[in-house]
């Protein structure tokens, strides 16, 4: 029977703290970059003009139909060959995860905007608003409310995806656990600790999406 010994993990709490900081940093970068670029792509997917529609569609299809890990590794090992500068693990992982999240959130934005009643557009145009004004003042505020549960789910996915950055040795929680496990020979405790940390962080967020979904279903 295995003797659980978390002392070796607690002794290395500062190593985990550095990892947690790394996880939070890449999460914040990808959340902001992914969801805002996703809006741009989503508007492109919604556009009736081919110059916007086709590139946006190609982008969404490509990034949704390839694995994130392949994208991260491509940005880390392949892209620098085309570039005159080297790419840090943080930059490569952020690029992969952000672009992937942009592709997925673009479809959420598009569906949200499409779900708004045609009459809202007509009303806004009748008041003399331009397309962009109508979008910003009338359509998006209503659509965003409907998209909140789906976007929160995306945020949770981004948080989980951040562990993939460890594959290219970016210092985050899982990478630090690997380090601790190899130094102290305690993979059981180290990886269990990481799993528990993620669960504790994300479980409240998941419960929040359930509440949001229920509230939305009630309101509509």
């Amino acid at each position: 029977m295995h003797q659980w010994d978390f002392a070796s993990v607690l002794d290395n709490a500062d190593v985990f703290a550095v990892g947690a900081l790394g996880t939070l940093r890449i999460f914040a970068i990808c959340l902001v970059a992914g969801l805002s670029f996703g809006l741009v792509v989503g508007l492109g997917r919604y556009s009736q003009r081919r110059v916007f529609y086709w590139p946006a569609t190609a982008f969404v299809e490509f990034f949704r139909n390839t694995p994130v890990l392949v994208q991260i590794i491509w940005f880390y090992f392949a892209l620098p060959i085309l570039m005159p500068f080297s790419i840090s693990p943080l930059a490569a992982a952020s690029l992969g995860i952000s672009l992937n999240s942009a592709a997925f959130s673009a479809e959420i934005y598009r569906a949200g905007i499409q779900s708004i009643d045609r009459g809202q557009w007509d009303g806004a145009r009748a008041l003399g608003m331009s397309f962009l004004q109508a979008m910003r003042r009338i359509i998006l505020p209503q659509a965003l409310k409907r998209m909140t549960p789906a976007l929160t789910n995306r945020a949770i996915e981004i948080f989980k995806m951040s562990t993939l950055a460890s594959a290219i040795a970016y210092v985050e929680l899982l990478q630090q656990a690997k380090l601790i496990a190899s130094l102290n020979f305690n993979p059981i405790e180290a990886y269990t600790a990481v799993a528990v940390i993620f669960f504790v962080f994300l479980w409240p967020m998941v419960q929040l999406t359930y509440v949001l979904e229920r509230r939305l279903a009630r309101d509509e």
Binding site: H2, I156, F159, K160, M161, S162, T163, L164, S166, A167, L174, A177, K178, A181, P187, I188, Y191, T192, V194, A195, F198, F199, L202, W203, V206
Partner: peptide, 23 residues
């Protein structure tokens, strides 16, 4: 269900590969 939906799959994989065999 909750645990496996809210922890990253890579952490789960490492746990099953490195930790479970020891236990």
């Amino acid at each position: 269900i909750e645990v496996f939906r809210t922890t990253p799959p890579l952490v789960q994989l490492f746990w099953f590969f490195f930790a479970l065999p020891l236990i």
